[in-house]
Design a protein around this nucleic acid. Structure first.
Length: 479
RNA sequence: GGCGGCGUAGCCAAGAGGUAAGGCAGCGGUCUGCAAAACCGCAAUACCCCGGUUCGAAUCCGGGCGCCGCCUCCA
């Protein structure tokens, strides 16, 4: 078939060929966090989804200009400041740092640009001016509102008309607005709030305008991909389209790409349900690669139901991969034979996973293919030991892993060190090694009862032993 | 109420007209002192229900039922 990447576009509700405006450069903007609280799994999913998309596009030869913002002025930040007594700038600074840290710990690569709202106030003011000049916005008191009825395409992304939205129940009444659906581009200052000077008096940007201003600043008036969680489609992205296209008269974004939400036990993760899981907390329990594998085992558009069981299963699945790496590592390179069956499996994998990624970044499908190859690889290790083909296979799996941001550790680091430090297991490496020696001494004398006692003891501490022809190896149980 | 989406074996989850990936859990076998890991096999007539289109439907269309998201701050 056509050698083109297909991407599902929320705007057209179809999978489309990804065709950049120019050559092989893809410009992508993804809505980053409003920095008023710790990053949760929803942030992690969005970041990882677009991290993988970026990694893959680059792998297949695209240049990706990737911008992801920090919204560091906002009502929620101001509220947090009032609650805690910490100045708003400080609230924003703390959570921006935390977000960066969390993303680093999740293995998310840093985007090309990470603009902050507070550093782009002039751009925002200019953009609002243009929108007013073109007649799409009006001043009311100290505020500036976007007039949705002036923009003909309003609702094209979220597939609803203003009338339908008005039929909905909760629309806040604000006498300053001409139409209840109008939204603020600029908010006049209130006592104790951060403000900047503007042609409309002191104030600050409304929500939505920052993303338009910053994406245009770094990526241009029209760019290829705009991403974010599905929950941002309305009103955030709808409003971005309206204000951007009102200002420039050209199509803002070619492909709108939205990731599905995280659910906890089939329910939305939300403050009111009290079921928000922070990235930091998840990382204290599970390896970051397990979290990524869990997410990437779902198609990015589908909801992902997070549970302890599901994450434990991802760790178990990862363990299978690392055990395979370890088996391969431990082989001596003395075999001159080649395994043709493995070569065939490898070729199949090479073409299939790329194909799956070309088809709307179907990482879940690639994971299935990976495990097919893993079986073939283990079979090959059993039958042939080390071969050049095996070496090649391992390298290819690693390379695949680096596109998904998994399988980047040494087997021993994953199977031992990482987990030893993550679980408080009341046992250390030294003691484990001592016990293994004792057990092997017992085994030599065929004192099986004693040997099994030691193994059971270690098992009770969460350590699994494995006797290989050469020696005894150990790992921390997956659970 | 409006808009969007989902329902695939015990659980999780891909697939979107051509005869159902993969993971986890379970069972049996090979290997092992016994295990573990790995491999082989079983469970497995797995596509919510009822109609329709088609040579052929999990996939398309219509109608049900159940669940979820958005419409208010959200990744």
């Amino acid at each position: 078939m056509e050698n083109r990447i297909k991407v599902y576009n929320t705007l057209t509700q179809k999978k489309e060929d990804l065709i950049p405006f120019e050559g092989k450069t893809v410009r992508m903007y993804v809505c980053g966090p409003t920095v008023y609280s710790s990053a949760h799994l929803g942030h992690a999913r969005a970041a990882i989804t677009f991290d993988v998309i970026t990694r893959f596009l680059r792998k297949v030869g695209y240049k990706v200009e990737y911008a992801r913002n920090y919204t560091d002025v906002d009502d929620k930040i101001i509220n947090k400041s009032k609650e805690t007594g910490i100045p708003p700038e400080e609230v924003a600074r703390i959570y921006t740092e935390e977000y960066k840290n969390d993303m680093f710990n999740l293995g998310v690569e840093t985007p090309t640009h990470e603009p902050k709202v507070t550093e782009h106030i002039p751009e925002i003011i200019d953009l609002i001016k243009t929108i007013i000049d073109k007649g799409y916005a009006y001043q009311s008191d100290g505020d500036v509102f976007f007039s949705i009825k002036m923009f003909r395409g309003y609702g094209k992304l979220s597939k609803r008309t203003p009338d339908e939205m008005l039929a909905g129940i909760r629309v806040d009444i604000n006498e300053k607005k001409e139409d209840p659906l109008d939204f603020a581009l600029w908010k006049g200052v209130k006592p104790g709030e951060p403000w900047w000077k503007s042609p409309w008096g002191k104030g600050r940007p409304g929500w939505h305008i920052e993303c338009s201003a910053m994406s245009m600043r770094y990526l241009g008036n029209s760019f290829e991909i705009h991403g974010g969680g599905k929950d941002l489609i309305f009103p955030h992205h709808e409003n971005e389209i309206a204000q951007s296209e009102a200002a420039t008269g050209v199509e803002f974004v070619k492909y709108w790409v939205h990731n599905g939400v995280i659910q906890i036990n089939r329910e939305k993760m939300s403050k009111s349900l009290g079921n928000i899981i922070n990235v930091k907390d998840a990382l204290s329990i599970w390896n970051r690669e397990a979290i990524r594998l869990f997410l990437l085992s779902h198609h990015y558009q589908n909801p992902a139901d997070f549970s302890e069981k599901a994450l434990d299963e991802s760790e178990t699945a990862l363990e299978r991969l690392y055990i395979m790496f370890k088996r391969a590592n431990d082989l001596t390179k003395n075999n001159k034979r080649e395994d043709k069956e493995l070569a065939t499996s490898l070729n199949l994998f090479n073409t299939k996973w790329i194909e799956s990624m070309f088809d709307d970044f179907n990482t879940a499908d690639t994971v299935g293919q990976l495990f097919d190859l893993v079986r073939a690889t283990n079979r090959s290790i059993d039958a042939f030991g080390w071969t050049h083909t095996l070496q090649e296979t391992i390298e290819e799996i690693r390379s695949f892993g680096s596109t998904l941001g998994i399988l980047e550790l040494n087997p021993d680091d994953y199977l031992k060190k990482e987990k030893l430090s993550k679980r408080s297991l009341e046992i250390d490496e030294e003691e484990i090694n001592e016990l293994i020696e004792k057990r092997n001494a017992a085994r030599k004398e065929k004192k099986w009862k004693r040997a099994d006692e030691i193994r059971n003891y270690l098992d009770s501490k969460g350590i699994t032993l494995e006797d290989t022809p050469k020696d005894t190896i150990w790992r921390v149980k997956a659970k």
